[in-house]
Structure formats: C-alpha cells, structure tokens
C-alpha cells in the first residue's frame, strides 16, 4: 500500500514562533495546476500588531550586534537555504514556476544571502563621511537603522523577491515585518523555517501571509513602525501608503527596480538614518602646534 504523505500546515512566523493567525481565517491560493496550495493564514491587523511588538523586542539587540556578527548570521541563512534547496524548488514549481526558473530562483536566493552578508560590515565604511568643517571640530556622519520596518514582498519571485526586500533591511540593523506574496506564500513560510535555524534572533524578521489590500493601511499607519518598503505597489496603494504615513512621518520606500533582480547597497541605505556628530578639537596646544 502506498504511504500517505504528511502535509505541512503553513503558519505565520512571529517572534521566532510559528503561530496561526489569531483571526482563525484562511485563504486557499491555487498553484499552476489549479490545485489548492493549502489553507494559508489570512493575517489580521492584530497579527500585524503582534508582529510589530516582536520586531520592537528584537530591534535593540539586533541593532547593537557587531556588524561582523550580523554578517555571519546572514551567511548562515544562505547555508541553511542551500541545504534545503530541493524543498524550495519543489514549492516554487507547485506555485507555478518552471523547474529551470525554480532552480535559478533558489540558487539566486542563496547567493543573495551571501551577497548581503558581505555588506553588513562594509556599507558603513563606503557611505559614512568625515566632514571637513571649517571650525575646529571633529565631525562625522554615520548610518543608523531607522528602526522597525514594515514591508510587502513582491508578488513575483516569491522567495527571491522576499529575500531581496528584507535582507537589505536587516543588514543595517533594523527589524521587520514582511507580508509574503499573496498568491505564492509557501516559500515564505518555508523560509521562516530556515530563518529559525540560522542563529537569526526571533523577531528580527517576522513573516505574515494574507492580503495586501487588507494589511497595507495598518502597515503604513502604525505609530511604532518607522519605515515601509515595497517594490510592486499599484499607484493607488502607493498613494495610500504616502497619505497614511504622515501620522508619524514614516519613511515610504518604493524601490524603482525589480527588487528580486537588484544587488546593490543602496536598498540598505534606504532604511537608514544619517546621524552627524560634532565634537570640539582643541585648536592649539600651547606653543609648537604651528610652525
């Protein structure tokens, strides 16, 4: 007799845990063959708010880690992903990719982790500045994380697009809540299993599934969220995002480039603040300072 396959229940990823949506709701996107992909959590406003609480809890610890340590953790995500490539290829195919595209997307995803791992301790060096002010001061500008970032992963390339969206956010010490591709959510949840085993502290990346129409207004109006990132919003959604952002002047970042195909340090900078510090330099030490 043929063995009965054990099917996975797809859940959310909040604070390093895998809860179901508090709302008890689900939706059933269909794959390429018209078959249901399963009962996927339809996250609610409350789920989003819970995820923000988790992200806030994780922020301080993540932001204050050594850049080198963040780099190692991102590399570790790549290692874990590589080891589970076959599973991701299967899921991408199930969601509608060709086998060749699925394989390519998974390989690119692993490489994207390695790429951004390397930036963790380099972007600061490349983009910070020591400013030659005219007065006798030491003056420098460095990058700091903007804080908690809400993000919507692109619909297409559900694995690579999500990684391309969130990796630059966490490279710079932010924590985030990301909404997965609505039609192709499986790889996002499986990615959560990778993250949970990658030394990434719980809460740094939180993953929700559901409908962007429903969640977007909450993501852009939440007072504890400092920035919002997306790359494939409709004009109407982008307008809503900018309008609702004014409550706490959230930074709205809508990447122009297809984020799945973008390898660049500039997305890292888009969720950073520039802090400039001044300190006096003693202007002349008695005698001998000048000749």
């Amino acid at each position: 007799m043929k063995r009965l396959e054990v099917l996975k229940t797809y859940k959310l990823y909040i604070g390093g845990q895998f809860p179901r949506t508090e709302s008890g709701r689900y939706y059933s996107p269909t794959g390429a063959d018209g078959q249901s992909l399963g009962n996927i959590c339809q996250s609610s406003r409350k789920d989003f708010r819970n995820a923000v609480v988790a992200a806030k809890g994780a922020l301080g610890g993540w932001a204050s880690r050594a850049a080198f340590n963040r780099s190692q953790i991102l590399y570790r995500i790549g290692e874990m992903l590589e080891g589970r490539s076959a599973q991701f290829v299967d899921e991408l195919i199930k969601q509608g990719s060709t086998e060749a595209d699925a394989r390519q997307e998974v390989e690119d995803s692993v490489d994207r982790c390695v790429y951004y791992a390397g930036w963790c301790d380099k972007y600061q060096q490349v983009f910070s500045a020591v400013n030659p002010v005219s007065s006798s001061h030491f003056n420098f500008s460095i990058y700091e994380p903007v804080g908690i970032v809400a993000a919507i992963a692109p619909e297409e390339k559900p694995l690579l697009g999500l990684l391309g969206t969130v990796l630059p956010i966490i490279v710079g010490g932010n924590s985030c809540v990301v909404l997965a591709s609505g039609n192709s959510p499986l790889s996002a949840i499986t990615l959560a299993e990778v993250l949970a085993t990658s030394d990434l502290p719980g809460g740094v990346i939180n993953i929700l599934t559901g409908f962007r129409e429903e969640l977007l207004p909450f993501m852009v109006s939440h007072m504890e969220v400092n920035a919002f990132v997306a790359s494939d919003l409709s004009a109407e959604h982008l307008k809503t995002a900018k309008e609702e952002s004014i409550h706490n002047l959230k930074r709205i970042i809508h990447h122009k480039e297809n984020i799945a195909d973008c390898e660049s340090p500039y997305p890292i900078l888009s969720t950073q603040e520039v802090k400039t510090t001044w300190h006096p330099i003693e202007s002349s030490i008695s005698g001998g300072g000048k000749y």
Partner: peptide
C-alpha cells in the same frame, strides 16, 4: 554648529 559640509536633518 553648522557647516556646508555637515549633513543636517
């Protein structure tokens, strides 16, 4: 303190 070379914001 202000200076043209020093970012402000």
């Amino acid at each position: 303190q202000f200076d043209p070379t020093s970012p402000f914001g």
